[in-house]
Design a protein around this nucleic acid. Structure first.
Length: 564
RNA sequence: UGCCCCAUGGUGUAAUGGUAGCACACCGGUUUUUGGUACCGUUUGUCAAGGUUCGAGUCCUUGUGGGGCAACCA
């Protein structure tokens, strides 16, 4: 056995650094505090999941996955007024799509309503909770403020028997909505506002998605979340920073109920620039028609990203790179884009498409003649094979690839320039035709027959390579180009200005006259392709069906290093 | 005039008292039948002031800056 140096930067030492939560997990496992960890992802089914949730999902599921633990998916359904089955279904689909399985089970807070009621009763019996009959405004006033203590409710010292009876009446429906609440009896002078006799049950006659009209009282978040964690045996309950001030209460209930001590640990939520992450605001985008729906490809929702063409793997890579810490953060949107490119460059098949076509005529290629030329499906992966590209005299080329006046830095077509047509021949400019308004319509070139791709004996050097599509076999398609939804980096960070003022008017560009190579006839909706030199695209099933012709979404551009 | 949390390049994130590293972005170069990819390189950082220590990004004190907390929401 060789002696190891203690040098911290030794190349032999490849121990990956752990973020602070994983460090806790590793320590708890090592110390024997837990034999197995058990986490949970607990969304309220009142909206669609977004990329911020993806971070939380990757954390809780990822931790369980890498430490042989369990994860529960728990729907936090304590407020029936805002929740619905539509959201439950969407959440399930999104978590599954990310590639995770809730191997600890699927739960609903409502599954635990009986236990929660029993817990509340126990608290009353121990003199730790009481029924308060004051109205909301009065209670708010008595609560004090962050800088001044609160005052006790006149109902604070009711007897256990009386409280028990009143709470039973609340449950039985003897009191109208809002008439009274159950409160934990803690300390109205506590410096932490959440400890000033928090409300733990309220009366709300609202039909519940799962329990119907069985209950007219529902527990508040603080009296449901931690208790469910405990009932489900959750060892590490991970949530975002805004719940930090709730932790003393979380622990107070564990102590006073004497139940399994789940541990709450908070981390900083994800913020992405040029977008918004609040469910409420995303809902407004949908309801006010700024986007087509929750799954609009410009939305930061999981379903929007999926439709945009993001892959589960790219989102998981992104979450991994973002890291876990307690510091407020704003992640560059470009990191998300990088994660997608990183995945798709390795895996997506290449195809040629012209989004803004002008005619390209090879004047010395015989009319009526054609041939098939092979083109590799993925230069990063030889096993992906190749496909045959029809080639002829009349082609489509990209309008951006021609310029009437060009300098030495212009590698594409222009008077005097020579370029290669990808996987085909080298061609030289001959002429071009303009419409009366000056718009270029047609470019004429001559080709060098001995410059064929793979057997080039011409000795000619071409600096630029252009993509093209054979005119007679091209597929007509519509392509939607997406840009950031907001032109401002922090649309909700301007006081006095609504975030909708910063919507990017050019976030969607529709190109309706695109030409695709014929192999794309077989393309499956949702399968990513790289359109050579343009970016990553996939066909949109819903839009295609609506339009009656193929509609493709651009997921992300290729990185453009040209500073022309 | 309270309580809690946080502070490392442009953006994130490591360094567990001992060489401030990595990724993204940016800029430059090499290769290239994608101005992509790959590879190489440059620039840029410990909020401040004291203290402890042989040694402080890390520990202590005090400031400064940022975030959170007063729904019968979660």
């Amino acid at each position: 056995m060789s002696e190891r140096t203690a040098h911290p930067h030794s190349e032999e030492d490849s121990t990956p650094s752990l973020h602070f939560i994983e460090q806790v997990v590793v320590d708890d496992l090592a110390s024997g505090k837990h034999k197995q960890i058990h986490t949970r992802f607990p969304p309220e089914p009142n909206g669609y999941l977004h990329i911020g949730h993806a971070k939380a999902i990757c954390l809780s599921f990822g931790l369980a996955e890498s430490h042989n633990g369990l994860v529960n998916l728990r729907f936090d359904d304590t407020n029936p007024e805002k929740e619905s089955q539509e959201y439950v279904d969407a959440i399930r689909r999104d978590v599954s799509w990310l590639g995770y399985t809730w191997n600890g089970g699927e739960f609903y807070t409502s599954d635990h309503f009986d236990s929660l009621y029993a817990f509340a009763t126990r608290l009353i019996e121990n003199g730790k909770a009481y029924v308060d009959h004051q109205d909301a405004a009065t209670m708010a006033e008595q609560k004090g403020s962050p800088t001044s203590p609160g005052t006790n409710s006149p109902h604070r010292d009711r007897s256990v028997e009386h409280n028990l009876q009143l709470f039973q009446e609340m449950k039985a429906g003897d009191h109208p909505d809002g008439h009274c609440v159950l409160r934990a009896k803690i300390d109205m002078g506590h410096p932490n506002m959440h400890m000033r006799d928090p409300i733990i049950y309220r009366i709300k006659r609202s039909h519940h998605q799962r329990t119907g009209d069985d209950w007219c009282i529902y527990p508040m978040y603080d009296f449901a979340h931690g208790q469910c964690d405990s009932l489900e045996g959750i060892t590490h309950s991970l949530c975002t920073l805004e719940f930090e001030v709730h932790r003393p209460l979380y622990e107070w209930f564990i102590e006073n109920l004497n139940i399994f001590p789940s541990r709450q640990i908070e981390f900083a939520r994800l913020n992405l620039d040029h977008t918004i992450m609040s469910k409420r605001k995303l809902l407004r985008l949908v309801e006010e028609g700024h986007v087509d729906g929750w799954d609009d490809p410009r939305m930061p929702t999981i379903s929007g990203l999926r439709r945009r063409g993001f892959t589960p793997q790219s989102i998981r890579t992104f979450c991994d790179r973002v890291g876990i810490a307690k510091r407020e953060n704003v992640i560059d949107f470009s990191l998300l884009e990088w994660a997608l490119r990183e995945h798709l460059n390795r895996t997506a098949h290449r195809a040629m498409a012209v989004l803004d076509p002008i005619k390209l005529v090879i004047v010395n290629y015989p009319e009526g003649q054609s041939e098939e030329l092979p083109s590799e499906n993925n230069p990063e992966d030889p096993s992906a094979g190749h496909r045959m590209m029809p080639f002829g005299r009349n082609l489509w080329m990209e309008r951006d690839d021609f310029k009437e006046e060009a300098n030495k830095k212009w590698f594409r077509l222009a008077p005097g320039k020579t370029v290669r047509l990808k996987s085909a021949f080298i061609v030289r400019y001959v002429d071009h035709i303009k419409r009366a308004d000056g718009r270029v319509e047609e470019v004429h070139v001559e080709y060098f027959p001995d410059s064929k791709s793979g057997s080039d004996n011409s000795g000619i050097k071409a600096k630029g390579t252009l993509h093209w599509v054979n005119a007679s076999t091209a597929i007509d398609a519509e392509v939607r180009l997406y840009d950031r939804l907001f032109s401002d980096a922090a649309p909700d960070g301007h006081e006095g200005q609504d975030f909708t003022e910063f919507l990017n008017p050019n976030s969607l560009t529709v190109r309706s006259n695109c030409k695709l190579e014929p192999s794309l006839q077989q393309a499956q909706a949702g399968t990513p392709y790289q359109f050579t030199r343009l970016g990553y695209f996939s066909m949109d099933e819903e839009h295609s069906a609506q339009a009656g012709h193929p509609v493709w979404n651009r997921s992300v551009t290729l990185k453009d290093g040209w500073k022309g």
